[in-house]
Every structure is written in C-alpha cells, then in structure tokens.
C-alpha cells in the first residue's frame, strides 16, 4: 500500500452524478476543522439530500465524525476546535453569529456511538427536549409527544407501562432506540448518527438499521459508520473520507460498484481500514 502521507496535494473530491429525487437539505462549502495545531478536516464540500440516508465511511481518524459534528456545531463545545467554511441547512448559514446553537441543535438531532440516556426515567429522557424548548404546555401534549416518539423509535411496545423506569436500566439496543426517540421528540429536520451501532450486538444492530430505514421517510439522516456492509444496507448516498479529505461522494450503489478513486477502491475492497 502506498503511504498516503506522502501523496502530494490530494486530488480534488470525485463527485458522482446525483439523482435529483429529493431537494438538497444540507450543503457544505470547503469546511475545514483544526484542533489546535493539527488540521482534522480539509475543505470538505458536499450536498446532502433530504429524506434519505447518507453514510459517511472511511478508516478511523479520517475526520468523518468531526465533519458530522460541524453540522450541528457540536465542535463549539470543544475549546481547541476551529471551524472554517460554511455549512448551509435549507440554504441558511449555520456558522453565522445570528444562528443560536440551541435552536440549531433542536433542528439537527444527534445520536452518539455509545448510548447515553440521561440518569432519569424513560419518560423524562424522551420529554427532555420538548421540556427545555417549551414545546408542550400541557401534560397531555407532552404524553402524546413521548408516546409518538417512542412509537417512531419502535420502543413503545417494550416500555409501555414502565415509563418511570430509569433509562439506564434498558439493554444497550433499547437504550440506543431510547436516545433516538429522545432526538426525534423535538421533531428535528436532520438526524446525525455517529456510529450508532458500533456498541451493539448484531440483533440490536439489525433493529436499529430497520429503524433508520423507517425514519428516512421523514428525516434527512446522516450516519457515520465503520461498516461498509451497513452503509450498503441502509444508505442511499455514501461519502468516503480519508485523512481529513472527502475523497469520493455519490449514490451508494454507484460508489460500491464503481468507485472512481483508487483509495475508495482499496478501502471498499478491504485493502486497508
């Protein structure tokens, strides 16, 4: 394998033709991220369609999670992180001063690698977002939101009648679905998922993947994954990252059957990663 470090000035991103079935929801223009002295992301530009699943793949440390965190400005919480470039949601600049991250994050939900239910009851976990944002004024409204969110996350049947139980008492897969329910309780437009299945067993993974498939009817889903099989199973679009660069982006089928870039080819065929 060639040492990627030595390749001078990496080639520009290869973009496949995009089927224009859905409108563009998220667009970025030359987004770069630095952590202190190290640059983690170089000039990433991408256009992600609404109502579909876009997968970010690539070897670990390639910047895909960093990029994901740019979309809801989670990098703000890291002191040393500096983001440049622009991120547009529905054509609206996210990084502008006028945009309050609080509002932005209500619009762009996020699910993390490790399930992180709050140390509260299942009900309070799901009701957390609606409560802090003041989305429900009456108890019945809140009940309705919680039930609807849990149903959408496919967890209702399992937890009905046990809503007072602490969220941490659920199994790993259930916890992850609880966290998804928590995210969709504020009706976000975009849901970011950072390797949502990497801490789960295969059965729970399958359940989450099913859920992702259901959710894409209504949401713009962006999912970072380690597993190419998963990307192939759940996503319509795939972006391949390598060493902080977006190498190739296109419809999933296209990417897997006909990669244009040699690095993509190597990664997909398992030469490295």
């Amino acid at each position: 394998m060639t040492d990627p470090q030595n390749t001078a000035a990496p080639a520009a991103t290869v973009y496949h033709d995009q089927p224009s079935a859905n409108p563009i929801k998220v667009e970025t223009r030359s987004v770069s991220v630095r952590y202190g002295d190290t640059q983690a992301l170089h000039d990433v530009s991408i256009r992600i369609p609404d109502r579909g699943v876009t997968a970010f793949i690539g070897p670990s440390g390639c910047g895909k999670s960093t990029f994901l965190r740019c979309i809801n400005r989670m990098n703000d919480t890291i002191d040393s992180a500096r983001v440049s470039g622009s991120v547009l949601i529905d054509g609206e600049e996210v990084n502008s001063r006028a945009v309050d991250p609080v509002v932005l994050r209500a619009r762009v939900g996020m699910v993390f690698q490790k399930p992180n239910p709050f140390p509260k009851s299942i009900y309070d976990n799901v009701a957390y977002g609606p409560r802090i944002h003041g989305l429900a004024t009456k108890r019945e409204d809140l009940d309705a939101i919680v039930e609807a969110s849990l149903r959408k996350a496919g967890l209702w049947a399992e937890v009905e009648g046990r809503l007072g139980m602490p969220g941490t008492a659920l199994s790993g897969g259930q916890q992850q679905r609880l966290v998804i329910a928590r995210a969709i309780a504020v009706n976000p437009e975009v849901i970011l998922m950072d390797e949502p299945c990497s801490a789960l067993d295969p059965i729970a993974t399958a359940r989450i993947e099913e859920l992702i498939d259901e959710l894409r009817e209504n949401y713009c889903l962006i999912i970072v994954t380690h597993s190419m099989a998963q990307a192939a199973r759940v996503s319509q679009m795939t972006a391949f990252f390598h060493l902080g660069h977006l190498v190739e982006y296109g419809p999933t089928e296209d990417m897997f059957t006909n990669p244009h870039d040699a690095r993509t080819q190597d990664y997909i065929t398992g030469r490295f990663g």
Partner: peptide, 27 residues
C-alpha cells in the same frame, strides 16, 4: 460524569446551565 452525557444534552439543544442542572448535577 462521562462526556457522552454532556454531548447528549448539548445535542438536544440544551444550554450549558441546563446541561449542568438537569443532567450533570443529577448524575
């Protein structure tokens, strides 16, 4: 208190004080 809980709260759009009072403090 694990960072993941903070991340979870921030990702929901909670402010810092809300995160501290409602998530970190109970934890």
């Amino acid at each position: 208190v694990p960072q993941s809980l903070r991340d979870g709260a921030y990702a929901m759009g909670a402010t810092k004080s809300e995160t501290v009072r409602q998530v970190i403090f109970p934890a």
